[in-house]
Design a protein around this nucleic acid. Structure first.
Lengths: 363, 363
DNA sequence: ATGAAAGCGCTAACAG
DNA sequence: CTGTTAGCGCTTTCAT
């Protein structure tokens, strides 16, 4: 009448013992067939494999992991669940497959507690290592007494943590974007940056500033406005920039989302992106090429980032030498949102596409 | 000189035995402190807890899982890594936290092999259950000899698999979207559907068809064009629809991505969305409210879907009665892309916002 | 090539 | 309240 335990796990799962008994073999032999097939007689192997298949037997991984002291699992820890990080995961999964790892994704919502929880999964033997994609700050982690479990940073270095890192050069990327605008003849270029506390944002600003400085343009009219990497922030920042005098003719947005926000603000103001005002983004997210107009942006090799990170992690886990830092190149992808600087104000282009109220001084 | 094994796991991790020895207790007591603290003397408990904290000791989960025959892990299996599924995962994670489960996400790329691999994780004891978000076809799974591990379908039922399902009523949603357009006075309404082999797409078409049928509109001019749920497909489909005579004045797109594609095609043709042609999407993805113009669409409670799925899964795992089917409501969110049917051709509205070449017959 | 035996680190009766 | 004992299911020497 009373069930002893919850019905949970349906039926009694097959165990190695069962296979062995059925075939009159020892569990060791069955185990070997599954783990080191070369060590066992061809005929026996076939018999075992047959039964295994017929019974759909799967070895219990908790037991195997306990014995082997490893799990074959790698955790990719991302701060937010955004499209931005998805490709890193894809690359990681890919590399994982090649190395016999199961790659799982976890996210922290930037909560250090959650982050710590995932590290404990590793310390607790549930995973063999972690790919850390952007940790708000590593100082929390750095305070650990014991050695950190096998960890590799991807996308950017973790502040205060000396771990192998696979990243991109955000300074160079920022410079690249800015130089593109300069080469198009723009003189008043603004930057909509990410949050100033994020290293990634800082670096992109730095690239912007150094390109401007080297170009000899007047830094006074090359504003930097801070956003938070979201579309609405880009829109708001752009709205503010449109009120400045003199108004910038080109915008380098700290990421694609803000670039799109900026574009929407520009269109809304009745100006034409790529002609009246040029916009270049950063990241080359999927939306960048799909958006209309297609976005000129700095391509970040996300998939590759994840892939390399797992390769390095495998090195760390297996005690091989891991690269301390791997720098992956960015490249500029020129599409439709950038064009030559508009002619001097006196040569007024006839507005073919104006829409809504125009804020331009020529009105 | 020669390292015995790879240096992998740094140092020797602390074990219960160590804690016990250090404190002159038995491992059972330490174990109890960690698992059933109420069974232990307050003073002893404190001593153990202190040392545990000082040593940053974490019990080995492989061992615990092996003993307890459960892992506390739930896998959320999604077909693709798209923003669309992210919210389901969020909801699942949330519910998981409430129930002491660690929720991990995995994706199959619609490859049945990968899907099977995740099921094996469960069969192998590495996870306790699976949330299946849209499986291309369950027939593969249905052919399993043994009972399926604890599984709950989320978002839509898995064909041929009698498992608890938490889903939305796509037929009702499709009807809702279509009726909205009808109520606005549209007479020629087209539907851009998802791939005809996907049940979700079929159901939305069905909702469309039944609303049209009930309305008494002429089905001859209410075309259904098939897309594949991607933005470019929506754009292409819309481009074709624009060439039809008579041209539809309203579009119900099978999802938001295709709706946006359609909008871009419409704008490109020099028509104004929401006035010349109305568009309603489906899903209410994050982009829907951010897009300009903001998209009228059918809201799908993704977070809730994930949440409820995990709650049901917990029931299944613990042998409690699980609901066979839970139907969550959709609701129409009216934003900027839908408006009254344009007046008869003879009453030509003055185009305030036209942009680019106009294809409209009034030119 | 196969079997016997030991044990991975933890939990859960069962005694005391 | 605490210790003793017996495994969980698998891998891996060590024999044979």
């Amino acid at each position: 009448m009373a069930m002893k335990k919850p019905a949970g796990r349906a039926a009694q799962p097959t165990k190695m013992k069962d296979i062995a008994a059925e075939l009159g073999l020892s569990v060791s032999t069955v185990s070997r067939v599954l783990s080191r097939p070369d060590l066992v007689n061809e005929a026996t192997r076939a018999r075992v494999l047959d039964l295994v298949q017929q019974l759909e037997y799967r070895p219990n991984l908790a037991a195997r992991d306990l014995r082997r002291q490893q799990s074959g699992i790698v955790l990719v820890v991302v701060p937010r669940l955004s499209a931005f990080f998805l490709d890193v995961f894809l690359g990681a999964e890919n590399a994982g497959r090649q190395n016999g790892y199961l790659v799982l994704m976890a996210h922290t919502e930037r909560d250090p507690q959650h982050e710590a929880a995932f590290f404990q999964q590793v310390v607790s033997g549930r995973a063999d290592g972690i790919i850390l994609v952007t940790s708000a700050d590593g100082t929390k982690l750095a305070r650990r007494r014991g050695a950190l479990p096998p960890t590799v940073a991807s996308l950017e270095a973790v502040d205060g943590l000396a771990i192998p890192t696979v990243r991109i050069d955000n300074v160079a990327g920022g410079r690249m974007a800015t130089e593109h605008l300069i080469s198009l003849g723009h003189q008043r270029i603004a930057h909509i940056s990410g949050p100033s506390h994020m290293p990634m944002a800082q670096h992109r600003v730095e690239g912007f500033r150094s390109a401007i400085a080297e170009s000899g343009l007047d830094p006074q009219v090359c504003y930097v406005v801070e956003g938070d990497f979201t579309l609405p922030a880009g829109e708001a920042a752009m709205a503010r920039l449109l009120t400045r005098h003199p108004r910038p003719t080109a915008i380098f947005a700290g990421n694609d989302e803000m670039a799109i926000g900026a574009i929407e603000a520009i269109s809304r103001a009745g100006l034409h992106v790529g002609r009246d005002i040029s916009v270049v983004g950063f990241d080359d997210q999927r939306i960048a090429s799909l958006y209309i107009p297609a976005l000129t942006t700095v391509h970040v090799p996300m998939v590759e980032l994840g892939h390399r990170a797992v390769m390095e992690l495998a090195n760390v886990i297996n005690g091989r030498a891991a690269a301390q830092e791997i720098l992956l190149p960015t490249r500029l992808v020129v599409r439709e949102t950038t064009g030559p600087a508009p002619a001097d104000r006196r040569h007024v282009p006839r507005p073919r596409h104006s829409e809504g109220a125009s804020h331009s001084p020529i009105a």
